[in-house]
């Protein structure tokens, strides 16, 4: 995603909301790529055919590096079940390590609380900008969020009826100043590894009903 070197454009539009704007917001990097290759990787990643018809606002964030992560995981459960689990946003902190809570506030609005360094918290409000049952959920933070971010998850029946394949895209606009550290904590040094670990935990939870752990087990003294 470092296609354009020092100045990475992140698309963060959505003044008018709506699906196209939100999806555009998911991947500034992807859209840049699209400009270069004539296709949107994000759309490919999500398995969507439609492209956004307009981009409401493009923010140029010079000297910053944006984070766009795409990962996929196969879950041995029916699409309906996986979709329902994710759609209940309160479940997200059960597998996304750095979220403390998500509370729903009406059918489309939610309030997110993430753990920040030094025991602090960061909160923002988000809204669902698109949802198609058993296919897609897309959301983005509201405009006044300190950490502007957006996400989408696409659900697909696995080959031969083997469970569900989900494809997740997350995009974070890099904030300056004190929030830079929060982003570092949210996504770690290897953002895509972190998301992969989150998705593995989701798989553990959905398939086996628990996340394996050895934290708190005994070891020899001395």
């Amino acid at each position: 995603m470092s296609l354009v070197g020092g100045s990475l454009l992140l698309v963060f539009g959505l003044s008018r909301g709506g699906r196209s704007g939100a999806l555009a917001a998911l991947g500034g990097g992807a859209l840049i790529y699209r400009a270069a290759r004539g296709r949107s990787l994000l759309y490919d990643a999500l398995g969507l055919r439609e492209e956004p018809t307009h981009v409401a606002r493009v923010a140029s964030l010079a000297h910053c590096r944006g984070v766009t992560v795409r990962r996929t995981v196969a879950i041995n459960k029916p699409v309906e079940e996986v979709y329902a689990f994710w759609r209940a946003f309160e479940n997200l902190p059960r597998f996304m390590r750095h979220l403390e809570s998500v509370t729903c506030d009406g059918p489309r609005r939610s309030r997110w609380v993430a753990r920040a360094p030094a025991g602090r918290r960061v909160t923002w409000d988000a809204e669902i900008v698109d949802e198609r049952p058993n296919e897609l959920i897309a959301w983005r933070s509201l405009d006044d969020a300190d950490i502007r971010n957006a996400g989408a998850v696409a659900f697909e029946r696995g080959p031969g009826g083997r469970g569900t394949t989900i494809r997740v895209s997350l995009a974070y606009a890099p904030p300056g100043g004190k929030f830079a550290a929060v982003i570092a904590k949210l996504f770690g040094e290897e953002p895509s590894q972190q998301v992969q670990d989150d998705l593995r935990r989701l798989k553990h939870l959905m398939e086996a009903g628990e996340v394996p752990t050895t934290e708190g087990q005994p070891r020899g003294e001395s």
Binding site: R162, D197, E207, A208
Partner: peptide, 26 residues
Amino acid sequence: AIACGQCFFCQRELPSLCDNTNPNAG
């Protein structure tokens, strides 16, 4: 070997290849 009994591999009777029991799978 520890197996969950629910994953793709457990259901194919390959429990030592279980997807859900290694906390350090990464």
